[in-house]
């Protein structure tokens, strides 16, 4: 216990320290704006359910990274939840293989409204490198309605935050 306390004290708050070192200068500002918008429009917190639909894993890795102590997306009011029943938004990665179509649809249907879907990563836009596959849906829009897209392969954590800000700014 003492070791944990001592080490966490020694480390300090990384999100601030790290910003001075290498986070792009706008990160805190973007995050701050996102925070106030979420406060206004979502009653303080935006809950996201992530569904990996055939992604290569790097998109997930970056989404997880957005929650690490450096980027700490949670402090802006964004939370990743374990069940679609708790979610406001669905974040989908990957080119949606046929085997995932039904699961994706059911996950969406299990969410309470109002709800929206965001796609994350080039694969999820139009299949990306897997566009010509015999086994991918290609267009997620045919399965669930998509509100916005986060480009990148994979998108960096800060790109995820920026995209969420843009999107939420548009929602009434």
């Amino acid at each position: 216990m003492m070791r944990i306390l001592w080490n966490s004290f020694k480390k300090g708050i990384l999100s601030r320290k790290f910003e001075k070192v290498s986070l792009p200068p706008g990160y805190e500002k973007t995050g701050g704006e996102l925070h106030s918008l979420i406060k206004k429009k979502f009653g303080r917190s935006l809950h996201i359910r992530e569904v990996a639909a055939g992604s290569c894993g790097a998109c997930e890795s970056e989404i997880i990274s957005a929650g690490n102590p450096v980027y700490d997306i949670q402090r802006f009011g964004v939370d990743f939840v374990a069940s679609p029943r708790h979610a406001d938004a669905l974040l989908v990665t990957g080119p949606v293989p046929r085997n995932m179509e039904l699961a994706l649809k059911r996950t969406y249907e299990a969410m309470p409204g109002p709800k929206f879907v965001v796609t994350c990563g080039d694969c999820a836009l139009d299949g990306g490198a897997f566009r010509d596959s015999y086994y991918c849906a290609g267009d997620i829009g045919k399965i669930v309605p998509v509100a916005a897209h986060i480009p990148g392969c994979p998108p960096r954590p800060q790109a995820i935050v920026e995209a969420l800000l843009l999107l939420i700014g548009r929602i009434n």
Partner: peptide, 11 residues
């Protein structure tokens, strides 16, 4: 498994 099958080898 197989839910993430994207047809990699064919591509």
């Amino acid at each position: 498994l197989g839910f993430a099958h994207r047809g990699v080898e064919k591509l």
